[in-house]
Simulated scan of single mutants.
Amino acid sequence: MKAITFVLGGALLLVGCGKQASAPEPVRPVLSVIAQPQVQANLGRFAGSIQARFESTLGFRVGGRIARRWVDVGSQVQPGDVLASLDPTDQRNQLRAAEGDLAKIQAQWINAQANARRQQQLFDRGVGAQAQLDIAQTDLKTTGASLKQARAAVDQARDQLGYSELKADHGAVVTNWQAEAGQTVSAGQAVVTLARPDIKEAVIDLPTSLAEQLNTQLQFLVASQLDPDINTTATLRELEPQADATTRTRRARLTLVDTPNAFRLGTAISVTLTSAVSPRTELPASALLESDGKTRVWVVDPQQKTVATRDVKLLERTPGSVVLASGVQPGERVVTAGVNSLKPGQKVIVDEEDPQ
């Protein structure tokens, strides 16, 4: 009887040990992110400014000494506004001289007309010679031509006097002065730069290596440096064909899709370049599990709250992240920490507020 009791006790002891050996794996908390597909590749961010698409540099059409500048940089001007003026003494003297010549030619013209009429009357009465009549008519024609020339000279002198004032030919903003009051300038020399504020564009300088890769698929996000929430998109309008000899960069001009009111001329901006790419997924580098020559990640089953490995194709690797070409579907939750200590089918606890 005692032997039977001993055997039964031993059997119960073995059963108890078997239950301890088959105890389930503990539920483990994990850090994770939700896979988000990327269809745009970030090519970099560059600083730039808002500038006018159309700028014009004006100069006097005559030479002389600048007597006064009437507007400053930043001033808004309208068509016909005087920007600067020269000392008009020389132009006024030329006008007076031309007017004097015109008065003299007009007197000669009056005399030539009277002489031609007199010779015609004498010839009609038969007491005048044909030669005298011909001379009088020729003198009248010559004097008439001189009169036209004198009148043109007066008009030209009057225009020259008007050219001593530099005027705006369109509504614009003064962006730069290349000459100061008291300075002597020649005809056509650059004096002031005007920018039309109605059409603005973004201007940035790009490295030559990147500029050579620009194509129509590139997208530009233009944002104010002071307030990134003020932004718009842009397209490439013009790329300078040659790089700057000092910076080895090429200037790119971008056409803005929209122009926020905060984008004034000279506003500092930040331009982000992106390009359309095949769908891919970016994950933290800690999510990658590499063993036996294979690259995997742990994917969480949202229903069972368990994890399973998934083979993935690695496209790009950086110290802090990896880019996967395939293997993970959008919306799946991927474990990002402790990947080497998990087992297939292991229960996990996922914090719903983990970064995504």
Rank of each mutant, 00 (worst) to 15 (best):
Thr306Arg: 10
Arg250Met: 10
Thr281Lys: 01
Ser278Leu: 11
Lys313Thr: 15
Thr235Pro: 05
Glu290Asn: 11
Val297His: 00
Ala268Lys: 07
Val271His: 00
Pro330Val: 12
Thr336Val: 12
Thr232Ile: 07
Val334Asn: 08
Pro241Glu: 07
Pro319Ile: 08
Ala325Cys: 05
Lys305Leu: 13
Ala245Ser: 14
Arg253His: 11
Thr295Glu: 08
Ala268His: 08
Gln329Trp: 07
Glu212Pro: 02
Thr274Leu: 07
Ala252Cys: 07
Arg333Glu: 12
Gln303Pro: 04
Asp311Arg: 14
Pro260Gln: 04
Leu324His: 06
Pro279Ala: 05
Trp298Val: 00
Pro260Glu: 04
Ala223Met: 05
Asp258Ala: 13
Thr235Ile: 12
Pro207Trp: 03
Glu240Ile: 09
Leu273Phe: 03
Leu283Trp: 00
Asn215Ile: 01
Leu265Pro: 04
Thr246Cys: 00
Gly338Asn: 09
Arg248Ala: 09
Gly293Ile: 01
Val334Gly: 10
Leu218Val: 13
Leu273Arg: 03
Val222Trp: 00
Glu238Met: 10
Ala234Arg: 08
Arg296Gly: 05
Thr233Ala: 02
Ser291Val: 11
Lys313Met: 13
Asn340Cys: 09
Ser278Trp: 00
Gln213Cys: 05
Leu236Ala: 11
Asn215Ala: 11
Arg310Glu: 05
Thr246Val: 14
Thr247Phe: 01
Asp311Trp: 05
Thr232Ala: 05
Glu282Tyr: 00
Val335His: 06
Ser224Ile: 06
Val297Phe: 00
Ser286His: 02
Val271Gln: 02
Leu214Met: 15
Arg310Ser: 14
Asp301Glu: 03
Thr281Asp: 01
Lys343Trp: 06
Val339Gln: 08
Thr267Tyr: 01
Arg251Gln: 14
Asp229Ala: 14
Ala223Gly: 06
Ala252Trp: 02
Ser270Leu: 13
Gln304Arg: 15
Thr267Cys: 01
Arg248Pro: 03
Thr272Cys: 02
Pro302Arg: 08
Val328Phe: 04
Glu316His: 13
Ala262Asn: 10
